[in-house]
Amino acid sequence: MSTTILCAVDISNENRDIHVLQEALRLAGLHDDAQLDVITVLPDYGTSWVGSFFEKKHHDQVVKEAKKHLNALVEAALGSDVNAKVRHIIATGTAYEEILKTAELDKSDLIVIGAHKPDFKDYLLGPNAARVVRHSRCSVFVVR
């Protein structure tokens, strides 16, 4: 049985997710046939009033740039050989919703996510990580 691991990263934080990617790779290494997918989620400006000021080509340009940044981040963290095998996913929307939707569609066995930007009310677990943990149908590994 093949295993799919979905690792969620935030490309706007440059190298802050390197340790999250490395942990996802370590976990994938526990399964010989594991597929490592890496997702980053862009905010969706298209559904708000502000979004009406942007043409579709702007979103396409942002996605293209995000792919470059995601590719560079994964290569910096895991090396070019591993990066060539990773499936890079750029989603647009709310981070936790897109992570959960992608995990569901791809039948991921595990989601790896970092605990970022915690608010006191979130008690050391960022709001996106907390929501992914709470609503995921598969196991979630939170990297601190």
Rank of each mutant, 00 (worst) to 15 (best):
G93S: 01
C138F: 09
D122H: 04
R137F: 03
G93N: 01
D17N: 15
D32N: 11
L21T: 03
L27Y: 06
A84C: 07
Q61K: 10
D33F: 02
D109K: 01
Y123T: 13
I18Y: 06
E14P: 02
S12C: 07
G51N: 03
S12N: 13
V41Y: 01
L100V: 06
K107E: 14
D106S: 12
V143N: 15
F120Q: 03
E65I: 09
V140E: 13
D10K: 01
F120W: 04
S48C: 11
L105Q: 15
K67Y: 14
L25F: 13
D109R: 00
T94W: 00
E23T: 15
V38H: 00
V63Q: 11
T40F: 00
A91L: 00
R16C: 06
L78D: 10
A84N: 14
A77L: 04
R87H: 02
L21C: 05
A66P: 08
Q35A: 12
V132A: 12
V82M: 08
L70T: 11
E98N: 04
Y123P: 05
V140F: 14
I90S: 06
T47D: 02
H88M: 13
A129D: 14
I5P: 06
V74A: 00
G93D: 01
V142L: 12
R144E: 13
S80M: 02
D32W: 01
R26G: 14
N128A: 11
M1V: 10
D122A: 13
V63P: 06
K67F: 14
L36D: 05
L42W: 03
D17H: 14
L36N: 05
K117T: 11
S108Y: 02
K117A: 07
L6Q: 07
S52Q: 11
K101P: 00
K57M: 07
H135A: 09
V112L: 08
E14H: 10
I5N: 01
K107A: 13
H69G: 08
I113K: 03
E104H: 10
A8K: 02
E23H: 15
S2L: 07
V132Q: 13
D122E: 12
I11K: 06
V20K: 08
R87K: 05
V20D: 14
A34T: 09
Q35V: 09
K64E: 14
V133H: 01
D32R: 07
G29F: 05
H19M: 12
Y123V: 15
H135C: 09
T47L: 07
V20L: 13
H31R: 14
I113P: 13
G126Q: 05
E97C: 02
H19V: 15
K56C: 02
E55K: 09
A8E: 08
K101E: 08
S139I: 00
S139F: 01
F141L: 12
A77T: 06
S136T: 10
T3D: 04
K117W: 01
D17C: 15
G29S: 13
V143T: 15
V143K: 15
T102E: 14
D10A: 02
V132T: 15
A95Q: 03
D106A: 13
H58S: 04
A77F: 01
A72Q: 14
K57Y: 10
S139A: 10
G29K: 10
R134N: 02
R137D: 13
T102V: 11
D37R: 01
K57A: 11
S136G: 08
K56L: 09
A34N: 06
G79D: 06
D10P: 08
L36G: 05
A91T: 00
E104I: 00
L73W: 10
K57H: 12
V86L: 09
